[in-house]
Design a protein around this nucleic acid. Structure first.
Lengths: 149, 149
DNA sequence: TTATTTTTGCAAACTACTTGCAAAAGCTCC
DNA sequence: GGAGCTTTTGCAAGTAGTTTGCAAAAATAA
């Protein structure tokens, strides 16, 4: 009598997901488990709509997906990036698989690579056949005055 | 009898802006001149709304600002980044002032720095007093199959 | 199990951005 | 410099991703 949702196959996987949620102080609900399981199993980046389509039919509402994703970002379980204009993409924040993306300006296909030194990266991408390369690098942190308040 | 818009002060400045627009094959219109002049004079990054507020009253419609900014991006006169969720920020693309941004996760204040090697950058930011630093690095280019078609 | 808190689904709202269309402005060529 | 063609603008309405208010349902605590 398994009480696992269909898309979470093993007890082991289930335990991992429950552990991650509790570690972050989030209560364990079915939508949260399903979304997190998906992001761990298939590494994105996925838009909220991608996730909605990939989940079992009627698994949960789109609003719930947005709410969960925002909580996952706050707790740093996932990372987000604006790769296409006007649409966020989400990914499980796996510290062992630090990587970056290259998106084709025309077909929007998203590829990834694992180098992390800027000058090395561009030559890697050129070897991969990309042209007209630009990059966007932004840092996010908490500034001095916000640390005080 | 100067025919310059009020916010473009000198003939020299005007000539520069007209030159940039023509160089990119864009016709020279008042909204385009005003927006470009603003982005050159005050380096942003600015949102479309910031630009609207900074332009002389009734200088042009918000839709025109979006249209111009999109043309400027296509012609690489300006660059855009999603620093805050759901809102693009724009900056004059000055090749002599390559730099990156750090945005405070809490107050959203945007600061900039000119280092461009990843490992050097983080220590620079720490010295500046930021904590809990994350970065977002994305590359954009034209992939092999799009180059053919 | 019961009581309290949190989360969800639904529908409506919100907001950044885009678009269709007619009028206005810019460009071209004589 | 002006006529005619093209491009751009303003306006208003539309679009799409995302958020939110509220009552019902699920999760947690006791």
């Amino acid at each position: 009598m398994s009480t696992l949702p269909t898309s979470i196959k093993t007890e082991e996987e289930n335990a991992k997901i429950v552990g991650l949620l509790k570690e972050k102080g989030l209560s364990v609900t079915l939508p949260r488990k399903l979304i997190l399981a998906l992001l761990i199993k298939e590494h994105g980046p996925f838009s909220a709509e991608d996730i909605f389509k990939k989940l079992p039919k009627n698994a949960c509402d789109q609003a719930t997906i947005y709410r969960c994703l925002n909580q996952f970002i706050e707790t740093q379980l996932v990372t987000s990036a604006y790769l296409e204009k006007d649409m966020a993409h989400f990914e499980f924040n796996d510290p062992h698989h630090h990587h970056h993306h290259i998106i084709c300006k025309i077909c929007k296909k998203i590829d990834s690579f694992h180098d992390c030194i800027l000058d090395k990266i561009e030559s890697t991408l050129v070897k991969k056949g990309y042209k007209d390369i630009q990059h966007r690098l932004e840092f996010f942190g908490v500034c001095g005055s916000c640390q005080k308040s």
